[in-house]
């Protein structure tokens, strides 16, 4: 399959260059063996070791501990290669940015960078792009050209209809058919509903990392705001006016948003915030690098 040819703009090229640099650095900082930077914790069992201070309590092997009379833990080895699936929920809720870039721009960049990183690392990398009622699925592949074409196509993809939310329920069955232990990057807006039941099964089957983009307006309404706004989530035209009532409403919304974000993704290491005003490459590279190092330390 050949994807559409797309020309990356200079900014994207620069981001990609920085991303690749970060990835190389991350790889060089390892033991010399090639291990995937996408993995936080490997899933392959390696050995049993004594449990020490700072080790993850979840790794305790209670059978061995019971036999030997002291705490022992399982040691996992990071996979040499990972199956990486980038999920982008291209929802109308992403189409906002108080600055030059929108949340969608930032997530598109992040998705493209993750795809490119997968291609560079020769990982089996795939894409699931949910937009409106449709789902574009690029099955995981090591073919670099195919992955880069998908990344380029994604960067040039037009936004979906403003009044049609991305249907997340379509993606769960698709992900559940992927091989066990895949690495999933879940790029979407902050959840606005309680986590679906299928999410638990998904998180047990794969290692899911959620990425969202925050805008300054997400934290607080700007002062002296008075504007007509169209809310694509509610499908309504509203007048936004600064005032105590609006600020209180915004604060309530923010608290609920954060609570839902934590309910969807309880592990700190599984959720990542990007800032809409800064580039995604450095932030992604730092996040992956730090998590990879933390995983090595844990091992």
């Amino acid at each position: 399959m050949t994807g559409p040819r797309a020309t990356l703009d200079p900014g994207a090229r620069e981001s990609l260059r920085r991303m690749r640099l970060q990835l190389r650095r991350a790889r060089a900082a390892g033991t010399g063996q090639h291990q995937s930077i996408f993995r936080g914790r490997g899933v392959e069992f390696d050995e049993i070791a004594r449990h020490g201070f700072g080790d993850d309590i979840r790794d305790v092997d209670w059978n061995v501990t019971a036999r030997r009379g002291e705490l022992h833990r399982k040691v996992f080895r990071a996979d040499r290669e990972a199956r990486v699936i980038v999920v982008l929920a291209d929802d109308p809720a992403l189409r906002f940015g108080s600055g030059v870039r929108s949340r969608r721009d930032a997530l598109l960049e992040a998705a493209a960078l993750l795809l490119m990183a997968g291609a560079v690392q020769r990982e089996q990398t795939g894409l699931i792009h949910i937009r409106g009622d449709g789902v574009e699925h690029v099955p995981p592949s090591r073919a670099r050209g195919r992955i880069l074409a998908a990344a380029a196509s994604l960067s040039a993809a037009p936004a979906g209809p403003l009044d049609t939310p991305a249907r997340l329920d379509t993606v769960f069955p698709l992900l559940m058919t992927q091989p066990l232990g895949s690495t999933v990057f879940w790029l979407a807006d902050s959840p606005s509903e309680a986590p679906p039941r299928a999410l638990g099964a998904l998180r047990r089957r794969h290692h899911v990392t959620a990425v969202r983009v925050l805008d300054p307006w997400d934290e607080a309404l700007p002062q002296a705001l008075d504007a007509m706004a169209y809310d694509p989530v509610a499908g309504r035209l509203v007048r936004l006016q600064d005032g105590p009532e609006a600020r209180a409403a915004h604060e309530r919304w923010r608290e609920r948003r954060e609570r839902l974000w934590r309910e969807w993704w309880p592990e700190v290491s599984d959720r990542m915030n990007l800032n809409v005003q800064s580039g995604a490459a450095a932030a992604l590279a730092d996040f992956l690098h730090l998590r990879s190092r933390a995983a090595k330390r844990a091992a």
Binding site: P92, A93, L94, R95, F96, L162, D189, S192, W217, L221, A227, M228, A229, Y230, D231, P232, V233, A234, R236, L237, V238, R239, L240, Q241, G243, E245, A246, A249, H250, R252, W253
Partner: peptide, 12 residues
Amino acid sequence: AVVVPHAARWAP
């Protein structure tokens, strides 16, 4: 009118 997701929840 600017597109502001979730704005309806902020508007009193």
